[in-house]
Simulated scan of single mutants.
Amino acid sequence: MDSSLDAIFSALSDPTRRAILGRLARGKATVAELADPFELSQPAISKHLKVLEQAGLIRSGREATSRPRELQPDALKKISDWIGDYRRFWDQSFDRLDVYLSKEQGYEDDKSGD
């Protein structure tokens, strides 16, 4: 597995970081805005933000005197692409199961019609 995927999945393993990403999906936010819904200090939130930044999930901007954070869609696309490979596997498996069950259902219908 790509080491950047390891960093992304590691960052996503924490519920606080996932909640922060959920908030940033609605738009840019400062550290104070991100800390508001949590019972965590701003330094604790800053540590979570650092992990998310290192994983490439967010970036820090600069607007006047604040440094709002925002989502980085490229990292999320990387996860989506990785999961997509497995989605195709499961779709194909379910398609094969559907064909098998249809044949079995036809076989059972033939037996009961005798």
Rank of each mutant, 00 (worst) to 15 (best):
G61A: 03
S93I: 02
S46E: 12
A19E: 14
K28L: 13
P43Y: 13
D95C: 08
E63I: 14
H48Y: 15
P73Q: 06
D95L: 13
L71H: 02
G84K: 00
I58C: 02
P73F: 02
A44W: 00
D36L: 11
I79Y: 10
P73N: 09
R96D: 14
R96K: 15
S60T: 14
G27F: 02
G22M: 11
W90M: 12
A32K: 11
R87G: 01
F94E: 14
T30K: 11
K78I: 05
D14M: 01
S41D: 06
I20Q: 09
A35M: 05
P73G: 11
D85P: 00
Q72W: 00
A35V: 04
D85H: 06
R17Q: 05
D91W: 07
L49D: 01
V31Q: 07
I79D: 01
K77R: 07
P37F: 12
P68G: 05
D95G: 12
D85Q: 11
E63M: 02
L34E: 10
R69M: 12
A55Q: 11
D95Q: 13
A75K: 11
K28D: 15
A35Q: 03
F38V: 04
P43F: 12
R67L: 03
W90S: 07
T65C: 00
L71D: 01
V51H: 05
L71R: 08
L24R: 04
D91Q: 14
L49M: 07
D74R: 05
A29D: 10
G61Q: 12
R59Q: 09
L52I: 07
D95P: 00
P43K: 10
L57E: 03
G22R: 12
S41C: 03
R17I: 04
I45F: 03
I79V: 15
A32C: 01
D14F: 06
